[in-house]
Measured scan of single mutants.
Amino acid sequence: MQNSHSGVNQLGGVFVNGRPLPDSTRQKIVELAHSGARPCDISRILQVSNGCVSKILGRYYETGSIRPRAIGGSKPRVATPEVVSKIAQYKRECPSIFAWEIRDRLLSEGVCTNDNIPSVSSINRVLRNLASEKQQMGADGMYDKLRMLNGQTGSWGTRPGWYPGTSVPGQPTQDGCQQQEGGGENTNSISSNGEDSDEAQMRLQLKRKLQRNRTSFTQEQIEALEKEFERTHYPDVFARERLAAKIDLPEARIQVWFSNRRAKWRREEKLRNQRRQASNTPSHIPISSSFSTSVYQPIPQPTTPVSSFTSGSMLGRTDTALTNTYSALPPMPSFTMANNLPMQPPVPSQTSSYSCMLPTSPSVNGRSYDTYTPPHMQTHMNSQPMGTSGTTSTGLISPGVSVPVQVPGSEPDMSQYWPRLQ
């Protein structure tokens, strides 16, 4: 039975679970980093996980050691009161100082060594604690504590007292930064006198190289990059290397530039699409467009005044059976039934097929058609009795279509119309 579990990581490298990497692998990681390889490249070359490479390099940059820390136990506290007071002093002298600059000053002034120097995250935590204590304490208590930490007896009751030896409130920041720059020169002199001055200088240079600022491109470089971006948004590694040799930039910087440029292009394309949609959409909808001609068919113009009344309900007709019959029939052209047409008796099958359309009241044959006459024609229609054979009435077949029909004066039988409509 094995005491430890061995495995293979996602890159194909072998590791022992819970145990640190061998010293030979750690040394190779540092050597590759000094030669300029990126952590992701080191991870692929040595088949070590990216997190492990970053952790080893980060500890090497901070402490200069590649040895693993002790497994188990607690780390001794490195942010001692003396170190905290120095950090507060540096922050007062130059409020814009960075944590890694404070760390360098602690090393250069001999406050800490490589073994007990606090990390950048520890210094940031100390600065946050100082800021929170400043908010919790009152103004007087804060000034007393700062005077105690600074070891001075001057008056701290006013704002300019934060910067000793100065009279203009805006000047101390520059003086403090100048003092810090002077301390940086002392850093070089002190570290050069040490035993491991060369190694420390190499480590600091490598650290500065990794902690780079934003790349500033010249106009020629920007023009070359934009020209390549117009050709393709995704250049391959050969195109990037050719462009890197042409404009004297690292291939990694060119790759990052193209990634950022593609993101910018997507944002601009989104804005262009929004403007295009806004320009195509009308600002207001016309009133006429809300009524579609496919839904509402136009009603033909009436030929006679009587045809303006298109349904039985508008003429005072309360018989719903006839109203439904007229509205359900398709529109037909106007025609006239003459008196000489043969009077065919209704076929029983045809009569039964339209039995649902006729009223059940037996008085329908005896009703006159003056009910369908509009009010303004009552006088004219009353002067001509319906009993004469020459009287013409208008029957409504569908809305908007008038059918003048000659009705025999002897017997106005409704059943004569249905064979004609089939």
Rank of each mutant, 00 (worst) to 15 (best):
R128V: 05
T80P: 05
L32W: 05
G141Y: 10
I45Q: 14
G58E: 02
G110M: 08
V16A: 10
T80H: 06
V83P: 02
A99F: 01
T25N: 03
Q136T: 14
L46A: 04
L57P: 00
I97N: 13
E133H: 11
A139F: 10
V14W: 08
R103P: 00
L107T: 15
E101I: 09
L149E: 15
A70W: 05
L106F: 05
A99V: 02
L146V: 13
C52N: 02
A88L: 09
L57S: 03
P118H: 00
L149N: 06
L32C: 06
I45E: 08
I56H: 00
F98M: 04
I56S: 00
S24V: 11
R69E: 06
E109S: 11
E133K: 14
G73N: 02
Q27D: 03
W100I: 06
V14N: 09
T80F: 06
I123T: 05
R38Q: 04
L127G: 12
S24T: 11
L21M: 03
I102P: 01
L46C: 07
K55W: 04
A37C: 14
E62H: 09
E93G: 11
P68T: 03
S4C: 11
G138C: 13
E101K: 13
F15M: 02
R19P: 01
T63R: 04
V30C: 05
I45R: 13
L130S: 12
A131G: 08
V8K: 07
I117D: 08
M137K: 13
F15H: 04
L127H: 15
S65K: 06
E31M: 13
A33K: 09
I29A: 01
R38F: 01
I56W: 07
S54E: 03
A79E: 01
L46T: 11
R38K: 06
R19F: 04
A33E: 05
T63M: 02
T80Y: 04
L146D: 14
H34P: 03
E82N: 12
S43E: 04
L46E: 03
D140N: 11
R67E: 11
S74L: 01
L57W: 01
R147G: 11
K28Q: 10
Q89G: 10
S85Q: 13
L146W: 13
R105I: 08
G18A: 03
A70G: 10
G64H: 05
N116D: 06
R69W: 06
E62M: 11
L106G: 01
L146F: 11
N9M: 03
I87L: 08
R67T: 09
K75W: 03
G51Y: 03
N50T: 08
G51D: 00
I45V: 11
G72P: 05
L57V: 03
N17V: 15
R105Y: 09
S65H: 07
E109W: 08
S132Q: 11
P118W: 00
L130M: 07
N50D: 04
S74E: 01
S65L: 05
V83T: 09
E109N: 13
T80M: 04
P118L: 07
F98A: 07
L32I: 04
Q2V: 14
T25L: 06
S74Y: 02
C40T: 09
C52A: 14
K91L: 01
S43R: 00
D115E: 12
V78D: 00
Q10H: 07
S6I: 15
R44L: 04
V8C: 06
